[in-house]
Computed example of a mutant assay.
Amino acid sequence: MKKKLIEMRERMNNQLTAMYVGIKGRVANEKGVSTIEWVGLAAVIIALMFALATAMKGSGGDLAETIINKLREMIEGINT
């Protein structure tokens, strides 16, 4: 009986260790994370510019429109 309990404990310990190593490997893998962060930041900035253009229609809208046009040119320049 005692031998069987020891074997069960060892199997469980091995399984838990394997799970821990697998999860730790997945969490440590951060490939591409910074790219996603930069894309998210760019999306937020563009959204703010569009909100600025909408808010400034009629009063200073030319400035906001110029900023958006420059951003649009920069983004189109990335695609080429």
Rank of each mutant, 00 (worst) to 15 (best):
L63M: 14
G58L: 05
L5M: 00
G61L: 08
T80W: 11
M1A: 06
K57H: 12
D62I: 15
T80K: 14
M1R: 05
N69W: 14
T80R: 14
M74Y: 13
E10L: 07
E76K: 11
I75R: 10
E7Q: 06
E10K: 02
A51Q: 10
I75Y: 13
G61H: 00
T35V: 11
V33Y: 07
M49R: 02
K2V: 10
A64W: 08
I68F: 12
S34A: 02
G25C: 04
E30I: 09
N14K: 06
N79P: 01
K4I: 10
K2A: 09
G32E: 09
W38E: 14
K31M: 07
T54P: 01
R9H: 10
K31V: 08
G77H: 03
L63W: 15
A55R: 15
R11S: 03
I68E: 13
A18F: 02
I36C: 00
G61N: 03
L41F: 08
R26H: 04
N13I: 09
M74E: 15
A51P: 06
A47Q: 10
K70P: 10
G40F: 00
M12N: 05
L48P: 05
L63S: 11
I6H: 03
A55T: 11
R26W: 04
N79K: 15
V27E: 00
T17G: 07
K24A: 00
T17I: 02
M56P: 04
K3Q: 07
E7N: 02
M8T: 07
I45K: 10
V44P: 01
R72D: 12
F50T: 09
N13Y: 01
L52V: 11
